[in-house]
Simulated assay, not measured.
Amino acid sequence: MKNDNSNDVKNFVNKAYFYKIVADSIISKDKILMLKYYDFESFNPGQSTIAYDYCNSVEKCEEIIIKNKSANNFTHYEMTGVIIKNDKFWMHPPRSDNFRILEMNAFPYIEFTSNTWDYELNFGNHWGDKKWIEWEGRRTSKSNYKVIDTKKLYKLGSNYIECIEIHIDTIIPDLGNTKSIFYYNSDYGFVRMLFTTIDNRKIEFNLTIVGLDSNL
């Protein structure tokens, strides 16, 4: 695969990424996901910080940005980690409230020098819930990532952007399987994230708008 990723986290800050959420009734109250990148280390060593907020409209998400700017602080519903380097882009998916179910799916991740790669994640039973599945002790998910298409087109606004399409199968011994599909673009990061969960639910995040903080 051609390594055309010259971005680091600085290229993504000062922007707000708005995703339309497509999901079943368990998450239907959440209409818009807002993703923000920050150029400082997260509580996870070696990772920069990303933040997620959930809003009923883009305007409501913009109010969060304006409030944070006026108070000169960083208050978000969920703050977690991302790794952006010349050879890879890896990030935590949303994992608050009912999105905790995504701990058992593959995380958004691309290696720019490979067409296939593996990733393992060890996690505890606090990610379980009677609404999807419960277990005792810890489990390890094993995900196999495969590039399917390096020139997949995705419509963002009135334009089509070129993406790398990645399919992932995840096996969790004694628990079950999950599937994920990601579209990655070098300018916007992961623009589409599709998850088939441990209980066969469908959750999608589709990037619709990218706004500059200075315009809000």
Rank of each mutant, 00 (worst) to 15 (best):
N185E: 13
T49M: 10
N159M: 00
I133L: 10
Y77S: 11
W127F: 11
P94T: 05
K85R: 14
V9Y: 02
A51N: 08
T49Y: 05
R95D: 00
P45E: 14
Y52K: 05
S141Q: 07
N125W: 05
P45M: 08
K155E: 02
E111K: 07
E59H: 08
L35R: 02
I171C: 02
S186A: 08
L194N: 15
D169G: 06
G81V: 05
I166M: 11
N122Y: 05
R100W: 02
I27Q: 09
M34Q: 14
K142W: 01
I101G: 00
N68Y: 01
P45K: 12
Y109I: 06
T116G: 03
Y160E: 14
S114P: 00
K10H: 14
I21P: 02
L102W: 00
P45N: 12
S158Q: 13
K152E: 06
L175A: 10
D213Q: 12
L212V: 12
Y109P: 02
S214G: 03
G46M: 01
D53E: 11
N5S: 09
Y119V: 00
D97C: 07
F107R: 07
G124R: 10
Y37S: 02
N98Y: 10
K142S: 13
F112W: 06
N144C: 09
N3C: 08
R100H: 05
T80K: 04
M79V: 05
K69D: 08
S6W: 13
H92Q: 04
I27R: 13
Y37G: 05
F12C: 00
S57V: 01
D4Y: 09
N44A: 08
D4S: 12
S141L: 10
K67M: 08
P45L: 05
E103H: 00
T208G: 13
S214M: 03
D174N: 11
Y160P: 01
I32E: 00
V191T: 07
D4G: 05
F182T: 06
G128N: 10
I27M: 14
M104G: 06
S141D: 05
D24S: 03
L194Y: 15
F195E: 09
F12D: 00
S186P: 03
N73P: 01
D118C: 06
Y17M: 10
N122S: 14
N122H: 09
H92S: 02
G189P: 09
P108R: 03
A16G: 11
V13P: 09
I66E: 07
Y17K: 08
S57W: 03
F112D: 04
K152P: 02
D8V: 11
T196W: 11
N215T: 13
W132V: 07
I164S: 14
T178Y: 07
E204V: 12
V13T: 15
M34W: 01
K15M: 04
R95N: 02
N159R: 13
